[in-house]
């Protein structure tokens, strides 16, 4: 954790809303990426991931008083947990309404890639954007086809950036098992990306 973040957390605790906003902003790219990858094609087809991200931010802002364990990790975990719950609720909602997103999906890799590339906007130079778009569409498509716990471990490790110890706690596995799982998941993802 950087000193900045510590300071922000301290200010946030002291009730400075701008500190929370800054913290949110700092975590936004990762949150966007998390939401995109976590959603799966069904929900992505239904609504913009940015809407979901915004809704997560709104909830976090309004429930600030429930946040209890002020460390940057704690904040991130809370953020991603909120997002995960929200996504699950959406999924249940679409399923219950028998609006099978799988059938309704406007299946379009390019569309999907556009949306995903949105979270790249701040880091990709224009010259690399075209290449990035294709790559991202591929990653996302491959990611969607992974088993749930593979996706989870990649998300937690590569996006949420939890340590293997923290992932072990969240997934209720041993650290060793998490490392094996992560390596297998990454290998599987690489396999999916590199079809014969």
């Amino acid at each position: 954790m950087t000193l900045d973040s510590l300071e922000l957390l301290r200010r946030m605790e002291a009730g400075h809303a701008d500190a929370l906003e800054q913290l949110l902003e700092r975590n936004l790219p990762a949150l966007r990426c998390f939401v995109r990858l976590r959603c799966g094609p069904e929900i992505r087809a239904k609504e913009e991931s940015s809407d979901l991200v915004q809704s997560v931010c709104r909830e976090v802002l309004s429930n600030l008083d429930r946040f209890q364990y002020p460390s940057e990790n704690g904040f991130q975990q809370w953020l991603f947990l909120t997002a995960a719950r929200k996504i699950k609720n959406r999924y249940a909602y679409y399923l219950a309404a028998k609006r099978d997103a799988r059938r309704e999906r406007r299946s379009s890799a390019s569309e999907s890639a556009d949306a995903f590339a949105g979270c790249y906007a701040s880091v990709c130079t224009p010259s690399r954007e075209v290449a990035a778009n294709e790559q991202i569409a591929e990653i996302e498509a491959a990611f969607d086809k992974l088993p749930e716990h593979y996706r989870e471990v990649i998300l937690l490790s590569r996006v949420v950036k939890l340590s293997s110890e923290e992932i072990a706690a969240r997934m209720d596995k041993t650290e060793g098992a998490v490392r094996v799982l992560l390596c297998r998941a990454l290998a599987r993802l690489a396999e999916r990306l590199a079809p014969n």
């Binding site: 700092r26 975590n27 936004l28 790219p29 990762a30 949150l31 966007r32 990426c33 940057e72 991130q76 979270c119 790249y120 701040s122 880091v123 990709c124 990035a132 790559q135 991202i136 990653i139 590569r158 996006v159 949420v160 950036k161 993802l189 690489a190 990306l193």
Partner: peptide
């Protein structure tokens, strides 16, 4: 893939 992912989320944490 790792480069792509890290470039997206590397800044946050």
């Amino acid at each position: 893939m790792m480069r792509a992912l890290d470039s997206v989320v590397g800044d946050a944490t």
